[in-house]
């Protein structure tokens, strides 16, 4: 079965992204497809490559990256909402350049895109599951 996941909360603040990750992992291990994970609200913070948890804690961002969720063309399907991301200072190289900001913090396993990607995921998946607060 084809799943889509929406994650609404940031890592470490709320369990939502951990639960979503465990769900996605279990789905993949049981032969299902995660066609897209869409990060919205503070969920966009799951994509920061600057995340440095202490050694005895789980690494939420790397956990997501380890799932290797991509489309047929190899594009990441860990999708960060652009409107929510820009508001919260989550930038990829292209957005940083466009806005004349030095540096960028988006982990390469993720990509930034529009809210339409969430609706499209709802249309194309068999089930969309929301994890939030």
């Amino acid at each position: 079965m084809k799943f889509a996941i929406q994650v609404n909360e940031g890592p470490y603040q709320h369990q939502a992204s951990d639960t979503a990750f465990q769900f996605a992992k279990a789905a993949i291990e049981n032969g299902h497809e995660i066609m897209r994970v869409f990060f919205y609200h503070d969920g966009v913070n799951n994509a920061s490559r600057f995340t440095l948890p202490p050694q005895d804690d789980r690494h939420v961002v790397n956990n997501w990256a380890s799932l290797n969720i991509k489309d047929a063309d190899g594009e990441p399907e860990l999708v960060v909402c652009i409107a929510a991301a820009l508001r919260r200072g989550m930038l990829d190289e292209s957005e940083a350049t466009k806005n004349s900001i030095e540096g960028n913090n988006l982990h390469p396993a993720f990509r930034i895109s529009g809210l339409g990607q969430l609706i499209e995921a709802g249309i194309q998946s068999d089930r969309l599951v929301v994890f939030g607060d």
Binding site: Y40, L115, G116, I119
Partner: peptide, 17 residues
Amino acid sequence: YAIESLEVVLIAAAFEQ
């Protein structure tokens, strides 16, 4: 949540669902 919900709704309108 309220305003960002409304933002999704406005985008969703373009998908004719």
